[in-house]
Nucleic acid binder design. Structure first.
Lengths: 148, 148
DNA sequence: TATATTTGCATCGTGAACGATATAAATAAA
DNA sequence: TTTATTTATATCGTTCACGATGCAAATATA
């Protein structure tokens, strides 16, 4: 008999992994319509909050490494959503700035959060449960993401 | 000013995505030591519960597509953890069966669940909170993963 | 000032994810 | 029994993730 700790139904990570993938899939049709992927959408969220940030700050905000973010930003630049320019004071830094088109996406994607929310909520999982869930996930993230 | 729905701190999906990635990273050193990745570890969990399953059943259990699972199984076969044989009754099916080495990993990885659990738990996120969290995530998965 | 170290970003290789498509076996319909 | 459809898996192309490594600019040290 398999040990309890090895049962798939007792795995926190598998649940997080699956829920994350399925929720990302829910974003897919809404984002691909505008030529975006989910990680690219996250970059937009970061830049909409605060424009003109260096690669490092964007990566840290998303708990990602720069070697993940750099090619992602290069693709977004090629698509015309942002521009990357060397920092004047410190030439090592690559400053990422939204283009007009990148800012316009904020209006075009205005309906996305609600649409995805509607797709995930049900009788047993309601919006009122979100704060508690956020707190729990944040605890896990802080514990594991420590340095960031 | 950015809309509340667009703030990164109000994103459920980003939290799931981050928590999933960070928890998977916690598995990494423990698994790579044995030549395994996290998705490969999930395949082992499935096969330890029930050996000799077709690709389709493994994929459904993990909420993945077969085009994700097939190459993953091919790599695991090359590593000697399992064998893939065509079904006798239905030759379309590829039956996946653990090797002795694949079964032995169950003992070698015996300490992994506890080690990862210790890495994720803290004062504010305790093992007692797991059942509630499981329920919430399962609701999301069922709502979004519907058919599977 | 010359040298060493640190910092910020980029490149490379591998392994997922996943949409789209292909292929062959099994089953259903004509 | 041909022919059409469904089913199970595999292949292909693109985009992440991420460990390892490289490189140039900035900073610290000698």
């Amino acid at each position: 008999m398999i040990k309890d700790e090895f049962k798939l139904d007792n795995q926190l990570c598998f649940r997080l992994y699956t829920a994350s993938r399925l929720l990302t899939q829910a974003y897919h049709p809404l984002l691909s319509e505008h030529g975006l992927t989910y990680p690219q959408y996250l970059v937009l969220l970061v830049l909409w909050e605060k424009d003109a940030q260096p690669v490092n700050d964007i990566a840290r905000r998303l708990y990602l490494e720069t070697n993940t973010v750099t090619p992602l930003l290069q693709r977004m630049e090629k698509e015309g959503f942002l521009v990357r320019t060397r920092g004047k004071k410190d030439a090592r830094m690559m400053i990422v700035t939204l283009t007009d088109e990148g800012r316009r996406l904020q209006d075009k994607l205005a309906g996305v959060p609600f649409a995805v929310g509607k797709a995930a909520m049900c009788e047993s999982f309601t919006p009122e449960m979100l704060p508690g869930l956020y707190k729990t996930l944040d605890d896990i993230i802080v514990k594991l993401g420590g340095g960031r």
